[in-house]
Structure formats: structure tokens, C-alpha cells
Nucleic acid binder design. Structure first.
Length: 533
RNA sequence: GGGCUGCUAGCUCAAUGGCAGAGCUGCGGACUUUUAAUCCGUAGGUUCAGGGUUCGAGUCCCUGGCGGCCCA
């Protein structure tokens, strides 16, 4: 380390050549004065950033790369913790290791410095830097040049301090990457917006932020494993589509220059997965993103991850069993139990068999009046008025019954509940019930007081009936319902080759994480969409 | 779309219409066993932007921007 830390380097801006070097011709001939503005811009930086930039300059001046291509590293922090877990207080192991991590706390005394290093997995290890081991220059350089947030590497003996803290007593230290921005206060939560907009900082300072990322990975891996063991094949179907279909939702529109045509970001993979089933991929699934150009709030994100699975010769009963298996496996992967613990400490039991009811049955119970798919519009409208539900004139009786159900029943569905047999009117891709007229073989799975977690059908596979349902939807679209589905000729052509009877299921991955953790959707998505700064 | 609410130092937050502050962070100093180290000293601000009321606006009013919560 270079000697006396006498002169704070002249803050003379970027070293020549890094930016605007010879490769940028515009700089050379003309406006040289513009180049000199870099230092001036630096002067506008907050003091703490100027200081850190100056330290970077000092390192360079000392001939030390603040961003070396590699540093000595023989062990991970967690590995050292594991291996020396039993090292007695105030003893030395005799073993030398090289470790690296981010400096999150510093406690400097005159001739002995302590720093807490943290690795990406959350493991922490103390580094000790003493005058007698390091020498005056290296110790002075440490104190002068290392800030909270820097990534450093330390080589030394694994010891336990007098207070019993497992530590690396440094013979040598190196800068692994100099941080130019200060870390936020480590023990106070970052503001909501900063957490979302600068997730990287959130991840550095908040262990729970890292845990949710790993929880999500554990969940998606578990879903895949369960499906693979049941011989489901994972596929990836188009996210750019010339027609949007498979759900009732407003799409995002984009444009292909090559084809000179507008394209839609998919709102659901359903119609492509069914093409797969027609082709003989009898058990097929996809986990990927859907995009819906709709509201953004605590349960809705414009892009959201979804699992869809189709099983030939299955139906909505087999999909219910599959769904319960998947959710319970995910819960088990997170918590080792079907009872998960939410962020607020409450327990949520996903175990055992789940409650089942029907839409009209549960609605009748809530209304105290017998309601069926045959109940006329006028009567339903009276119930709506009784409960102060505004009725959209575009609604039919099926849609109104569903709205009443959502208003009166779903808030009461706290434990996981399958709600079966929806009106045909609102389910254009669903097969008619095999014994109950007017309803379809569809269920919605509700959790946590009304959050819709998954849905499944016994799929409609009759191409003629499918065409009629599409035509009804096209009529709605023509009347200005921009959520209505478009007629997809190629999909119908596929169906005309014959699709086996099948069950299909879709589950929101973000919502599954919410149900398993009790967190809001913006916490379960690493980088949720936010307005540009 | 409607209602409520927030935006102040790098971070988290204070400040009856009357000198813009604290803790942490930073900087200078002391300290060879600290644990969010401690102690002494010190710096740091376009109070989101623009307009208005006022002798005087972070504070009140209007418009806009960016968030959050609740409702449809």
C-alpha cells in the first residue's frame, strides 16, 4: 500500500481515456471545453459520493485496481462458519483462508479494526485487521479507503475473538469492488418505493428480500419437479401473438417491423397448450409470463407469472387433485409443513383435503334464497339491488350471478376452497357440465378471504361448439367489449383434428407466493413494473 | 375513474405560519477484542416542480409530477 495518506487527491474527474477516448471522434476536433465539465459535474455530487470517488482515485494512484478481475478466495463465508462452528472462544485454528464479502459494519479502533462481511446468501463473517499482522501501511490504507458497502477480500487465519466471534485475522486485504454510493441505514427499513425501484439495494440490506427470491425459486422448482414426476412435458409457447386469446383480458399491443403487423403480448398460453395436446403432448405445462393491460394494485401486476397444465383424459376433478398436490408440495418445500407462516406471523393451513362448494350453492346460502342458473335476470337484479351491487346493462344473468358471488361469498373463503360449476355464459372455453344443465365443469380455487389462486376446466373439445362460443365472443367484441375473445381460425383448425378429453389448469405463481408468504404482490416480484423516474 | 394521504440531508424521520433539525452515514481526532462499538469535534439542504396568499410559507391555497392506502 502506498505511503502517507497525506493528500486527498485532486478531484480531477475521470482518468483520461476511460470515457470519451480516442474512439469518440466528436470529442477530438471540436468542443474540448465540454470535456472539462466532468469535474464540475462531480462537484454537484453529494459529499459522500465525492469522497468515495476520491478513494477510488487514490487506489488507482497507489497502483491498486479498485475493480480487480479476481481476488484471492478459497472459501465461502458460510463454509467457514460451518467448518469452524465449534472453534472455542479466543482460540486460533491454525488454518488460513481467503474470503470475500460486502462490508456491512465497521468497528475501527486504533490498532485493531473489525468489519462484518456479508455474502449474497446472507452468511456473515467477521474480519479482524490488526497492526501487528498487517503492518502500519496496510492498516492505514484499510481505514482510509474502505467504506461501508465495499466488497473486499481478506486472507488470514481463522480464529475466534475474545468475545467468541468467528473471524478471519487478516494478513492481507484487497479491494474486490469499490462502492461509489453509500449504503442506506442498515437497521431501518428502506422506504417502500426505494425498495421496489432499487431492489438491488433492498437485497443488500434486507435479509427478507433475499429470502423471498429464494422462496420463489424453491416454489417454481418444486412445481416443475412434481409435474415432471407425473410425466408432464414442459414447453414454451409464443408470447408474441398475432391474435390474443385464452382469457378475457385487455392485451398489450406491439409492432413487428419485419412483418409490418401489430402483435399482441399473450394474455394466456391456453390456446397453444391445447394445440400441443392435439399434437399428442398429452401431459403438458408451461411456466411463464402473461401480460394484461389492466390495473396495477396490491393483487394485480401487468405482467405476472403463471403455470398452465393440461392433461389428456383428465378432467376438472383430476386437475383439482393435481393443484392441491402442487400447492402442498410448494408449502412443504418452503416450510417443511403444509402449514405456512405468513410475514405477520399468522399460520395458514394448506394441508389435508380442501373444502368444495358450487357457485350457485354457495350463492344461495349467502343470499338465503334459492338461486340456480335458471334464475331470471329480474330476480337476480333484485338481489343485486338488495346488496347495493350496481348492475352493468351488458351483463347477462350468468355474469350477474358471478358478480354477486364475488361480492357475497369470496370474502368468506379463507381456507382453500374449490368453487365448482360456473355459468356457461362466462366460460367460453369450458365444457358443459356432464349432468347439470346450464353450467360448466369449471372450478376456481379461492384462498385467503377471496384471492383467486387457480382455475381449471374440463376442456371444451368439440370444434363446432367451440366455434359457436367464439362467435358469441366476437359479437361481444364488436359491441365494444375489449376483453372479449377473438375468433382464432388456426386454433379451431387444430381442434378439428380431434383433441382428446382433457383437464386444464392455470395457477398464478405470484399469487401462490402471496398465499404461501402473506406478502403483497410487489414483494413477490423481484422487479415489479413502476413508472419511469 | 373517485376519495384519503405522503414527498424535508446519502438513509430513516422531526419541525403552532416565525433562525430547517435529530439518529445513522460521511469527514477530522482518540482507542489492540469490537458486535448497529464507544467518546470528542465537524460538515452536509433548490424542503418534488411551478404559481398564489402573507411582513414572513417546509407548513395555507391552486396546478402539475411521483408514490402509498381505500373504493368502483
Amino acid at each position: 500500500m502506498a505511503g502517507p495518506p497525506a493528500s486527498p487527491p485532486p478531484v480531477s474527474g475521470e482518468p483520461v481515456g476511460t470515457l470519451g477516448g480516442p474512439s469518440t471522434p466528436s470529442v477530438r476536433g471540436t468542443n474540448v471545453s465540454e470535456q472539462v465539465q466532468h469535474p464540475a459535474a462531480d462537484d454537484d455530487l453529494p459529499e459522500q459520493m465525492r469522497v468515495r470517488r476520491a478513494k477510488r482515485e487514490q487506489l488507482l494512484a497507489d497502483g491498486v485496481d479498485p475493480y480487480p478481475v479476481a481476488v484471492a478466495r478459497t472459501a465461502e463465508l458460510a463454509e467457514v462458519r460451518r467448518r469452524y462452528a465449534d472453534l472455542a472462544t479466543d482460540t486460533a485454528s491454525g488454518d488460513t483462508v481467503s474470503v470475500a464479502g460486502r462490508v456491512i459494519f465497521v468497528r475501527n479502533t486504533g490498532k485493531l479494526c473489525f468489519a462484518t462481511l456479508r455474502a449474497g446468501d446472507g452468511a456473515e463473517l467477521q474480519a479482524m485487521l490488526s497492526l501487528d499482522r498487517l503492518g502500519a501501511d496496510a492498516l492505514a490504507a484499510w481505514k482510509k479507503l474502505v467504506d461501508l458497502g465495499d466488497l473486499v477480500a481478506v486472507t488470514g487465519e481463522v480464529i475466534s475473538s475474545r468475545r467468541g466471534e468467528l473471524s478471519v485475522l487478516a494478513d492481507r486485504w484487497e479491494m474486490a469492488a469499490k462502492a461509489l454510493r453509500p449504503l442506506p441505514v442498515a437497521h431501518r427499513p428502506l422506504g417502500e418505493e426505494a425498495r421496489v425501484r432499487q431492489r438491488y439495494v433492498d437485497l443488500i440490506v434486507r435479509p427478507a428480500a433475499r429470502e423471498i427470491v429464494r422462496a420463489r425459486a424453491a416454489v417454481t422448482r418444486t412445481l416443475r419437479e412434481v409435474l415432471h414426476t407425473r410425466d408432464f412435458v414442459e414447453v414454451e409457447t409464443p408470447m408474441l401473438q398475432t391474435l390474443h386469446g385464452g382469457a378475457a383480458a385487455r392485451p398489450f399491443v406491439t409492432h413487428s417491423n419485419a412483418l409490418d403487423t401489430d402483435l399482441y403480448l399473450r394474455i394466456a398460453p391456453e390456446l397453444f397448450l391445447k394445440r400441443c395436446v392435439v399434437g399428442g403432448l398429452e401431459r403438458v405445462f408451461e411456466i411463464n409470463r402473461n401480460f394484461r393491460n389492466e390495473g396495477v394494485d396490491s393483487t394485480h401486476s401487468p405482467e405476472f407469472a403463471m403455470l398452465e397444465a393440461y392433461e389428456a383424459y383428465g378432467d376438472y376433478h383430476t386437475m383439482a387433485t393435481l393443484t392441491r398436490t402442487l400447492v402442498q408440495a410448494a408449502a412443504y418445500a418452503l416450510n417443511g409443513s403444509h402449514v405456512v407462516v405468513h410475514a405477520d406471523g399468522t399460520e395458514y393451513d394448506l394441508g389435508g383435503q380442501w373444502a368444495e362448494t358450487t357457485l350457485y350453492g354457495s350463492l344461495s346460502a349467502a343470499l338465503g334464497e334459492e338461486v340456480t342458473v335458471a334464475t331470471p335476470m329480474a330476480e337476480l337484479a333484485r338481489y343485486a339491488a338488495r346488496h347495493e351491487l350496481a348492475v352493468d346493462p351488458k351483463w347477462g344473468p350468468g355474469k350477474l350471478a358471478e358478480e354477486l358471488f364475488e361480492l357475497l361469498v369470496t370474502p368468506t373463503l379463507h381456507a382453500p376452497t374449490f368453487v365448482r360449476d360456473y355459468p356457461a355464459e362466462t366460460s367460453p372455453l369450458t365444457r358443459a357440465h356432464r349432468s347439470v344443465p346450464g353450467v360448466t365443469e369449471k372450478w376456481d380455487l379461492y384462498v385467503l378471504g377471496g384471492m383467486e389462486l387457480a382455475t381449471a376446466y374440463s376442456e371444451l373439445v368439440d370444434p363446432v361448439e367451440q366455434r359457436e362460443r367464439f362467435q358469441q365472443q366476437a359479437g361481444l367484441a364488436a359491441r365494444g367489449d375489449d376483453e372479449a375473445m377473438r375468433l382464432d381460425e388456426d386454433f379451431l383448425r387444430a381442434m378439428e383434428y380431434g383433441m382428446p378429453p382433457a383437464g386444464g389448469m392455470g395457477m398464478g405463481i405470484d399469487r401462490l407466493l402471496m398465499a404461501l408468504t402473506g406478502l403483497g404482490i410487489r414483494e413477490t416480484i423481484l422487479f415489479p413494473l413502476v413508472r419511469a423516474e
